[in-house]
């Protein structure tokens, strides 16, 4: 694609990113600075085609193709005169013919075909329909009317909503004040203890809030228009085979030893003081010192009472064994099973 640029000074959009191209009735573009330079006096000729132009008629080029700009310009001008509406015609066919002539005029003017004849035709039409044109100009079209009513309605709605919001806020404030006032009154004059009063008030407030929420939850349809709570009516899912409902039975731990401290005990009994604090990296991975501590303790205590097929009662008198726990020399009279 060609670089967009001014045909006179050859500046391009690439070399000057802030380049602004202007266009006038003839459809030839010029950059802003060239327009300033050439039309210092307010009017002059187009450097490309020599058409006399006015500086005030230059406007920013929106479309890349200057011909489109020209056509838009011409169409605007033509439509100012050819402003009949559909209801001015006896039938659709006549209206379409009329639109067709407008298109022909626009096409001729923008492509320089039979310019003179076309211009003459326009003049003729103007003369013939002078009254009609003026009348139509003053009369607003039906579409415009419709748009105006829409906007009005919207503005009205917004105002009403705003008022309602304000009222709601006011009401809430008043209610809060009332509750506070009653709490203070109760505290001043009631015989109940302050704690009871506060808790009962709190309960009341909570109840009210819940009620309000219930009242609010009255929406019955999704934004798509599907009714809430009627999902199975229009959408038939595949029938699913129903398995047995799962019942979770909490796990029974076979410690096979003294029960290790629970997580809560680890936190409260100061176990954590005796373990290395978790580093930032470990914490980021979801590991706390309590987890490690819990595992170490569980591993330590679990399996202490594991006696796989222990051989015949080891010590002759149980009481004596329990009392001689510390004596490290007791291994001397161990049974022969061991060797």
């Amino acid at each position: 694609m060609d670089e967009q640029g001014c045909p006179r000074c050859k500046t391009t959009k690439y070399r000057n990113p802030s380049l602004k191209l202007m266009v006038n009735a003839c459809g030839h573009s010029l950059c802003e600075s060239c327009v300033e330079l050439l039309f210092v006096k307010g009017s002059g000729a187009c450097p490309e085609c020599g058409t006399p132009l006015r500086k005030s008629n230059f406007r920013l080029q929106i479309f890349e193709d200057a011909v489109v700009e020209k056509e838009i310009d011409i169409r605007k001008r033509v439509l100012r005169d050819f402003n009949k509406k559909e209801e001015d015609f006896p039938g659709l066919k006549e209206y379409n013919d009329y639109l067709e002539t407008i298109e022909t005029i626009v096409f001729n003017l923008s492509n320089q075909i039979d310019v003179d004849a076309t211009k003459k035709m326009i003049d003729q039409y103007k003369k013939d329909n002078k009254d009609q044109i003026r009348k139509s100009q003053s009369k607003m079209s039906r579409d415009e009317e419709f748009l105006d009513t829409l906007i009005e309605e919207e503005q009205h709605n917004a105002a009403v909503r705003k008022m309602m919001d304000q009222e709601e806020v006011k009401r809430e404030k008043a209610a809060k004040k009332k509750i506070q006032q009653s709490l203070i009154d109760d505290l001043m004059f009631s015989d109940m203890s302050a704690k009871d009063i506060i808790s009962s008030h709190r309960q009341n407030i909570q109840q009210q809030q819940e009620e309000e929420q219930e009242a609010r939850a009255a929406t019955t349809a999704f934004s798509t228009g599907i009714k809430i709570g009627q999902h199975s009516d229009n959408i038939h899912l595949m029938k699913q085979e129903q398995g047995q409902v799962f019942h979770y039975c909490p796990l029974i731990m076979e410690w096979c030893g003294p029960e290790p401290p629970t997580m809560d005990e680890i936190y409260h009994d100061g176990y954590l003081r005796n373990i290395r604090a978790a580093t930032d990296q470990e914490r980021a991975g979801g590991f706390r010192e309590a987890t490690a501590c819990h595992r170490a303790l569980q591993d330590a205590l679990c399996g202490l009472f594991s006696f796989p097929n222990i051989n015949p009662s080891p010590v002759k008198s149980g009481g004596a064994a329990a009392s001689s726990t510390a004596s490290s020399s007791s291994s001397s009279h161990l049974p022969m099973v061991l060797s």
Partner: peptide, 17 residues
């Protein structure tokens, strides 16, 4: 199950209890 972790557990437990 190695005895190394239980050892740490016992040391923590002794220090605490």
């Amino acid at each position: 199950h190695n005895p190394f972790r239980p050892l740490e557990g016992f040391l923590i437990d002794i220090k605490t209890r």
